[in-house]
Amino acid sequence: MVCGLSGTVLVGNLERSARRAARWLVERTPVRGIRDWGIKFSLWPVHFTTACCGAEFAAASAPRFDAERFGFLPFVGPRQCNLMLIEGTLTRKMAEAAVWVYEQMPEPKFVMSMGACAIDGGIFWNSYNIVRPKDILPVEVFVPGCPPRPEAVARSIIMLQKRIERGESVGLRV
């Protein structure tokens, strides 16, 4: 496509160039800062319980610990979520579902894994039916504990927010 703009002539695909320019702009400091600030306070974990850590995760969303004050509210559909929290052991059967759910989430998306099990098997390290989340998903933050206390979950959320702010977690699959 060729298009004239007050004397200058642009050659090439305008639409594609515009998209590239927009992406370039979004990655520049002021815009990017605003974007990351926005992402930071709207982390929506998908409602996906994988094992017993879910009990403490529920407690983290409950009144005493209230993770919602960090902009963190479990939501139903993966299509509207940008954070996946692996709540404990991933069994083989569950791992398959986890990957499906992850792939349905729009980018940028982040993965946190909660509990010793989700780090390296924890108490179930020698089980024949578990998968280590780091082998199948790009995990950004690990929360140790068995189960981690709700405070630890809150802290890990803040850690993820800091990482996003500093641009260490971009949430894109590379």
Binding site: T50, A51, C52, T89, T91, K93, M94, A97, I123, F124, N126, S127, Y128, N129, I130
Partner: peptide, 13 residues
């Protein structure tokens, strides 16, 4: 079976 973590078998170890 989504959370079958083989507790009984691991107990033997």
């Amino acid at each position: 079976g989504y959370v079958h973590r083989t507790v009984e078998k691991i107990a033997e170890t």
